[in-house]
Simulated assay, not measured.
Amino acid sequence: MLSYILLLCVALVNAYSDPGTCSGSCWAHDPNVIQRKSDGSFFRFSTGGGIHISSASTIEGPWTDLGYALPGGSIVTVGDASNLWAPDVHYVDGTYYMYYASSALGSRNSTIGVASSTTLEVGSWTDHGEIGVTSSTSDDYNAIDPNWITIGDASYLQFGSYWQGIFQVEMTDSLTSSGDSYTNLAYNASGNHDIEAAFMFEYEDYYYLTYSSGTAQGYTTSLPAQGDEYRIVVCRSTTGTGDFVDQDGTACTNSGGTTVLASHDYVYGPGGQGILDHPVYGLIVYYHYADKDIGLAVDQYQFGWNNLTWTDGWPVVA
C-alpha cells in the first residue's frame, strides 16, 4: 500500500511536463509572444515598469533584452500612464498593434490603450492612446488585460480582471472600440472573483478562451492556500462571442473552467498566458511562472512554454 501511495504522489507531482528550454534573458511577466513576418524572429513583450521587449531567433532563445516599447509612457489620462501593463500584440496589413493597460494594482480606474509599429523594434512604436474601453470604481468590470482576436469578418477585444470577470467588446478597427456594449464571457463567483488575463484562439471548430485563475503574486509575503495560486484554465465556444463552457459543460459565466496547467515540481503559479502557432512545434502555450529554485518574487518570474496536444477536443499540456 505504501509503495502505491508513493507512486500516486509521484504521478500527481509530474502531472505536467516541465517548461521547454529557455536561454538568455528568461525573465518574463504577463508575456505576449509574436513572430515577426519579415524574418521569423520572436518578440516577447512583458509587464515590467512599462512594456518591456525582448527578442530571439527561436522560442528557446537565447533571448536578448531590447528595452521599452514606450519608454516615456503613454498619452492616456487614466491610471498610471508611466507604468503600462499586460501587452497584447497582433498584426494587420503590415502594421503591428500593441494593446496595453493603464491602471494601479487593485484599482478599477483603468483604461486600455494602443500603440503601433511596422517592425516591433524598440524606438519604432507610436502611441495612439485610449481605444474607448475604460472603467472606474462604479463599474463591475476592470478595463485591463486586453486581448485581440478576429472572428469572421469582425474583430473583438477580450479584457477584464476580478470583479465580474472577463468581457468582450467589438472593435471598429485596431485603434477604436465600437462602444460600451460589453459581453460577459467568464466569471468566478467564489472568493474574490480572481480570474483575469484572457487569451482567445481558434482551433478547428471551436474558439478557446484561456485565462488565469487564482492569486497572481505576493508569494514572497505569504503563499496562498495550496491550489489557490495562479493556474491556466480554458473554456470553449462555437461562436467565440458567448456561451463558453468547460470540459464538464459548466458555463464559464458560472465559475466554469478546465485546468490546462497548474503548479508542479519547481513550477509555481503559471499564468499570464498566451497561445502561439509555432512553425515547428505547432500550438504551444507560453506563460510566466515562479521557479522555486530561483525565487518567488515578480522580478524573478521565468518564461515558460509547453506543447499542446488534444484530447476529445480539449487542449492538454504535452
Rank of each mutant, 00 (worst) to 15 (best):
W163E: 04
S38E: 09
D265Y: 07
V13P: 13
T47M: 05
A104V: 09
D39M: 01
N109L: 15
G72S: 15
D205H: 08
N192T: 14
S136K: 01
T111W: 03
V10H: 13
Y4L: 10
F201M: 05
S138V: 12
V316D: 04
G257R: 04
S174Q: 04
W310D: 03
K37F: 00
N142D: 07
S135I: 07
W85T: 08
A216Q: 14
T250C: 06
H288N: 06
Y281W: 13
L120G: 06
A198W: 08
W85N: 01
N192H: 12
G49L: 03
S116C: 02
D140L: 09
N83E: 07
A197H: 01
W310S: 05
I195H: 09
S212Y: 01
E60W: 03
G269Y: 07
G79D: 11
S74Q: 05
V92F: 11
Q217K: 13
Y141M: 09
D88V: 11
T119W: 07
L175H: 07
T309C: 05
T137M: 13
L261N: 02
V33H: 08
L276R: 04
V89E: 07
G94D: 06
L209V: 10
V169W: 09
A115W: 10
V169K: 03
T176M: 13
S136P: 15
L70Y: 06
T210F: 08
D153F: 07
F199C: 12
G179P: 13
I131P: 01
L223Q: 13
L7N: 15
I166R: 03
G94K: 09
P62W: 12
S181K: 12
G282Y: 03
R36V: 02
Q302W: 04
V78T: 15
G218P: 03
T210I: 11
D140M: 10
A11T: 10
G272W: 07
S116K: 03
V317N: 01
L283S: 03
G160E: 02
Y230E: 01
E170G: 15
V78S: 07
R236I: 01
S174M: 12
Q158A: 11
Q217F: 15
G257T: 07
F303Y: 02
V317T: 08
D277V: 14
Y286M: 11
A216W: 15
Y162R: 10
P146N: 08
A290N: 10
E204L: 15
Q217Y: 15
T259P: 00
T95G: 11
D153Y: 10
Q35D: 04
P31I: 14
D80M: 08
D277M: 14
R108Q: 12
W163M: 14
A11D: 05
L12H: 13
H278E: 12
Y141T: 06
T183F: 14
E202M: 05
Y208D: 14
G282N: 04
S177H: 09
T238M: 08
N147T: 14
K37H: 00
I275N: 02
I5T: 10
V13E: 15
G240A: 00
N306L: 04
I53P: 00
G274H: 11
S138E: 03
T239I: 05
L296N: 01
I53M: 06
G257V: 00
V133H: 02
W305N: 10
Y206F: 11
N306Y: 04
L175K: 12
L276S: 04
